[in-house]
Nucleic acid binder design. Structure first.
Lengths: 134, 134
DNA sequence: GTATCACCAGGAGTCGACCCCAAGTCAAGG
DNA sequence: CCTTGACTTGGGGTCGACTCCTGGTGATAC
């Protein structure tokens, strides 16, 4: 799979894909002899995981650290678990905050809906008055 | 309430508070004659709302636009509602993505927990073998 | 074979959101 | 009165994460 397809598939610009590789977030992607990237299964899974984590806001630095540990084999399992747990908690915290904001937004939207209704009623009343319907 | 207290209370640096004011996210805060900021009730509510929205990731630009509409009175109620609804949807989408990521993290953490357990079992077995307990 | 196109490296530029700093002002304590 | 310390403005710096750009190479279409 070449870079443009990967870019398309994951909705990540190829610039970003190359950037991720440059900074070591993704390991060097396999290439054709010509030097052109040819993403294999492993590469794709890495990209997918990265995309998922990034979309939730996990910092690049943390991901690099994590992948570095993966590289070092089983002896780093504990450390990796701790990283993931920490990020999990941070994520949960962020989500809780967002939930609060969401509630407030809903509340405010509802308020506006009522306001609009009220205005409409007033307008109808005004119309009614104008038409002397009442 | 002076700036340091507001900063403390909301966990926002006073630099950031001044910055918000400079860019028009918060309207000019009331001052003492000496020129020192003295946050009133209205100011505080604005700060709180801003903090809440920002903590959920709503862009500053959107908030400025929103507050601008508020300033313009009732005729902008529809537009305001639309902004809030749009942001609400974006927020919900982000949260859904984060939930997916959270699930994956939990799954991975569980995997690591099992891995650790397995390793411990192996170690015990190795010990047992070493001690010829079996 | 040549024109066009996707790809390459990697350095520079951008963007959003702060954060810091210098130089000055004011209020209260000693 | 003078020092100390919190406040002021405004501009420049930083940080994370891209995004763009230049100049070059290889492959495919005509």
């Amino acid at each position: 799979m070449k870079i443009a397809e990967v870019s398309q598939h994951f909705g990540i610009s190829s610039d970003t894909l190359r950037y991720y590789e440059r900074i070591g977030l993704i390991p060097p992607v396999t290439r054709k002899e010509s030097g052109i990237r040819d993403y294999g299964d492993l590469d794709l899974r890495r990209v997918e995981f990265t995309k998922c984590m990034r979309s939730a806001g996990l910092p690049i630095e943390v991901l690099i650290e994590y992948f570095g540990l993966v590289q070092q084999g089983d002896k780093t399992i504990e450390a990796r678990k701790e990283i993931l747990q920490e990020q999990r908690e941070l994520l949960a915290t962020r989500m809780a905050e967002m939930q609060k904001t969401l509630d407030i937004l809903d509340h405010k939207i509802e308020g506006y809906e009522n306001a609009v209704l009220k205005k409409e009623q007033e307008m109808i009343q005004t119309e009614d008055q104008a038409l002397e319907i009442n």
